[in-house]
Design a protein around this nucleic acid. Structure first.
Lengths: 168, 168
DNA sequence: TTGTCTGCAAACACTTTGCACTTTT
DNA sequence: AAAAGTGCAAAGTGTTTGCAGACAA
């Protein structure tokens, strides 16, 4: 059994910064480039791990007055960033989790149900299988999401075993 | 590119009926075999499609007086059935969706973002890839979930295009 | 100026919980 | 009789919305 190449994921060369790309997207839609939207893109661009809306909100609360945004605005802007192709959204344990999409290669995840850590991996084969299956069903595959859940080395050997195994 | 065998999914021979297996599970845990729990297993066993808690609840509302169960009981019992290995739970569009697990082969899904239909397919290769990736990361893979989303034939050609593409 | 955006508070959908009463064992 | 389960109403959680005032174009 062959498995596609795998490598540490990182930023790939892209023409525009996330901020620029978002501004472009907003303008194309007749939306406005507001202070809040910029604060959010910039902050998100600085992060490199997965995060959820409340986490982001909490982080913004810790920044100077002028660099904050309210809860509704955070939610609204995250949705726009997904539309803009800057972020990818997935639902885990009942809440939405975001990760960078812009300038990052397609990848999937290992999820440790013990410590709730996400680890990224890539596999071209998965994509190929998706396409093959889709065409067999007259489907046009637009994307796929593969989540392999289990226990990481640490959680497997530690006493504090996995809890949330039912909430994939 | 080779893709694993694929076949219409159906009930596989198993020793016990879902009702019996659930009773066994309950007894093993010192839980009681109540009228409501039986009503729910039986009803679920009769269904063969994917469903969510509110759907099930609505269906039970339409049955004779003695064959109903309250919302909390439905939610509690579905969780128990997942524990018992009778049902599998997945989260789609923000709500939990259940499908049979007992006596059914492992499979994955195509999801049409237009009409929100789920289509099952099997692929041994996916499982193999999961295991290979997991072991490379010192993970013990317990399960995986692969969702290929896109548009089915009908939705692709109809005018009413997909909406909810962001809520996988 | 014009129309969009923001933030507040309130509403939401889905799910879970506290508790007095009922039922299984 | 003892222990666990049920249903009701109420509380939660994460997320969305209506609307008046604030702001970008």
């Amino acid at each position: 059994m062959a498995v596609a190449s795998e490598f540490p994921l990182g930023r790939v060369d892209v023409a525009l910064t996330p901020r620029e790309r978002f501004a472009e997207f907003l303008q194309a839609r007749g939306k406005r480039v507001t202070r809040q939207r910029q604060v959010i893109v910039d902050h998100v661009a600085r992060r490199h791990e997965h995060f959820d809306a409340e986490q982001l909100l909490a982080e913004l609360r810790g920044t100077p007055e002028g660099a904050r945004a309210s809860r509704p605005t955070v939610y609204r802007t995250l949705a726009e960033m997904v539309d803009a192709g800057l972020l990818k959204k997935m639902v885990l344990d009942g809440r939405a989790v975001y990760e960078h999409d812009y300038g990052y290669p397609q990848h999937d995840h290992l999820y440790c149900t013990g410590c709730r850590t996400l680890i990224e991996f890539t596999s071209d084969e998965v994509t190929q299988i998706c396409n093959a299956v889709a065409s067999r069903h007259q489907f046009r595959a637009q994307s796929h999401r593969l989540l392999v859940s289990g226990l990481c080395d640490r959680c497997r050997t530690s006493k504090s075993r996995a809890r949330h195994q039912d909430r994939i």
